[in-house]
């Protein structure tokens, strides 16, 4: 049986508490999932997190030692650090795990709360995403599903917008044979290095949410032929123009929470319109975007005040997009 990392009392069934994770993240733990807390300690940690707010006053004195919280990934990185003198392979390795300073605390936990009651199924988010990211046919970073309730055909349909969930434990990341996809340390956004990705599509099989799309190199009719309109995509601020054989054609692509709209400090600015395109355009204001680490953000308030659900919770991916039903 698991024991509490703080008071060592046995833990039965564990419940999920976002505030606890946030408190730990703020305290500098890069991977909070290897910390196990009993219910009492969870509440205390959460209260501490509430009290300290965004400042990084650490509950770490009482929380487990770093040694206990070292994640497998950190461990691999440290190994790689030791081996880096051995040559290019090891250099590639430490670059691959992408952790220049493994203890750098997380600044943001970007995520969404999507209110299905407010979604009218207009698909404006899908259009806005296309317009923003210039994605080709068959590549849709956000889709709107429409599920009628089978037993109650007279009911209204349930629409829900579905971007990438930028999971806390993304199953897609670990399977990549070349470490081309990873979760950014500073804000948890799951990204793809187009120049490294070999296009094997293993990550697509591993994603439980269908959030990843392969670029088959196809174009919309207006983009084909001479003098066609081929706009560069602002994704990752790389402004690539799609061409046969050149990335991102032949790569897997996905939603980035429009991170190219962040400023140099990694901040979005809603008032200035630098905000993920789908959330910015949502006609019913169903898609709420924000930082779960900021306890005063709209999304943090929403999950405090309402019962939220996360899709396919049993897969353990811990999505950062939550739904209100």
């Amino acid at each position: 049986m698991a024991t509490c990392s703080r008071c060592a009392s046995p833990i039965g069934t564990e419940t999920y508490l976002l505030e606890v994770e946030n408190a730990l993240l703020r305290a500098g733990f890069t991977d909070v999932h290897h910390v196990r807390l009993c219910e009492v300690c969870k509440r205390e940690a959460a209260n501490q997190g509430q009290a300290t707010g965004a400042t990084a006053s650490p509950p770490s004195a009482e929380l487990p030692t770093t040694a206990m919280a070292v994640s497998r990934r950190d461990f691999v990185t440290r190994l790689a650090g030791v081996a880096s003198v051995a040559g290019a392979v090891a250099v590639g390795l430490s670059a691959a795990t992408g952790l220049a300073s493994p203890s750098e605390p997380r600044k943001h936990r970007w995520g969404m709360v999507i209110d299905t009651r407010r979604c009218v199924g207009c698909q404006a988010c899908m259009v806005a995403c296309k317009a923003e990211n210039k994605t080709p046919p068959g590549v849709n970073y956000v889709v709107v599903t429409n599920n009628m309730l089978g037993e109650r055909p007279e009911d209204k349909p349930v629409f829900s917008a579905k971007p990438c969930f930028h999971c806390e434990k993304p199953p897609c990341v670990d399977v990549c044979p070349v470490s081309a996809t990873f979760k950014r340390k500073q804000d948890g956004i799951v990204v793809i290095d187009y120049d490294r990705c070999i296009g094997c599509r293993y990550c697509q099989t591993a994603c439980p949410y269908g959030a990843r799309y392969f670029d088959f190199g196809e174009d919309y009719p207006a983009q084909t032929g001479d003098g066609a309109y081929r706009p560069p995509s602002p994704e990752y601020n790389q402004f690539r123009v799609r061409e046969h054989g050149a990335s991102p054609v032949g790569n897997v692509r996905k939603c980035t929470f429009c991170l190219h709209l962040q400023d140099e400090n990694g901040e979005y600015d809603r008032a200035a319109g630098r905000w993920p395109a789908c959330a910015k355009t949502c006609t019913g204001h169903a898609i709420r975007f924000g930082d779960f680490l900021d306890l005063d953000s709209e999304v943090s308030r929403l999950i405090r005040q309402h019962q939220t659900v996360r899709v396919k919770e049993e897969f353990g991916a811990e999505p950062n997009v939550l739904y209100l039903l």
């Binding site: 497998r72 399977v175 044979p177 081309a180 070999i198 599509r201 032949g250």
Partner: peptide, 25 residues
């Protein structure tokens, strides 16, 4: 089947030992 056939060597240089596919290769 790879999107970028010419990048198969990335598996050696950018190894990810968590990936079953890397181990397979």
């Amino acid at each position: 089947d790879l999107g970028h056939m010419g990048r198969a060597w990335h598996v050696v240089v950018y190894a990810n030992f968590n990936s079953p596919m890397a181990w397979m290769l």
